[in-house]
Amino acid sequence: MDTFQDKLTRIAAERDRLARGEASMREDALAELERINAEIESLEQKKESLEALLGLEDSSTRAGRGQIVQLCLRALSSASEGMTSAEVRDWIEADAPGTRLQSVPSTLSRLINQGRLRRDEAGRYFVV
């Protein structure tokens, strides 16, 4: 028969094993998210090249790597009551007209995963 201490030891070991598994899954998910974001960016660059080749160039400019993050953070810092993804996009379009902003939602999600933003139940984002 197990003693109370043995049971506590087994429970603690199981809790540690689960925590390690959860941390590992989170790291894997974040790595996959980064891989997908990089793939999306690569596909967007290929699309732009093909559009240029076909004479279908868009007059809008594409935000550079990291620039969209800074624009999102600036937009959210300007609003103490937070903003929805659409409001962030509208703010950036007003601040940087002509910038293509398809990646605002994924950028906001990535910033949440990095702990730089939080999102309330109404879908509003806030700088942490």
Rank of each mutant, 00 (worst) to 15 (best):
I36M: 07
G64L: 13
A38R: 15
L71A: 09
L33E: 13
S80M: 10
D58N: 14
M25S: 12
A23H: 11
V127E: 08
S103F: 00
V69N: 10
Q5N: 06
D28W: 07
R74E: 15
A75H: 04
Q70T: 12
D6E: 11
S24Y: 08
T99K: 03
R62A: 02
G21K: 10
R89T: 14
A12I: 07
R116I: 10
L71T: 00
G82R: 05
L111V: 05
Y125C: 04
S59Y: 01
G21M: 10
E32R: 15
Q114H: 13
A96E: 15
V88Y: 01
A79I: 01
T107Y: 07
C72I: 09
I112N: 08
I112E: 14
A19H: 03
S59N: 07
R62I: 02
G55H: 06
L54V: 01
Q5K: 10
D28P: 01
D16C: 05
V104C: 02
S85V: 09
E93I: 06
E34G: 10
E93D: 10
K7G: 00
G115Y: 01
G21A: 11
D28A: 15
R26C: 04
R110M: 14
K7H: 00
F126I: 04
L30V: 13
T3R: 06
F126K: 02
I112A: 08
M1G: 10
A63L: 15
E48L: 09
Q67S: 08
L73H: 03
L101D: 00
Q70I: 07
T3N: 04
D16G: 08
E41M: 12
A63D: 03
A75T: 06
L8Q: 10
E27R: 15
D95R: 14
N113D: 11
R26E: 12
Q114N: 12
S103I: 00
S103Y: 00
L111C: 04
S59K: 09
T9D: 05
I11Y: 04
T84H: 03
A122S: 15
Q70K: 13
A79Y: 02
D95P: 02
A94W: 06
V69M: 06
G64C: 07
A96D: 14
R110K: 14
R110D: 12
I40L: 12
A12M: 08
V128H: 11
L108S: 06
V69H: 05
L43S: 12
A94T: 13
L73K: 10
E41A: 14
F4L: 09
W91V: 09
G82Q: 08
E81M: 10
R20M: 07
L73N: 02
E48C: 02
E48G: 07
R119Q: 11
V128S: 12
S42M: 13
E27N: 15
K7T: 02
M1F: 04
G64T: 11
E57W: 00
T99G: 00
P105E: 04
I36C: 05
R89P: 00
E22I: 13
D16E: 15
G123Y: 05
A52Y: 05
G98C: 09
R89F: 04
R62W: 03
L108C: 04
R116G: 00
R100T: 13
E41F: 08
R26G: 02
R118I: 13
R124F: 03
L101E: 01
E48F: 01
D58E: 13
R118G: 09
I11K: 07
G55Y: 05
S77I: 04
R89S: 11
L30C: 11
K7V: 06
A19K: 11
L56S: 03
S103R: 08
V69I: 11
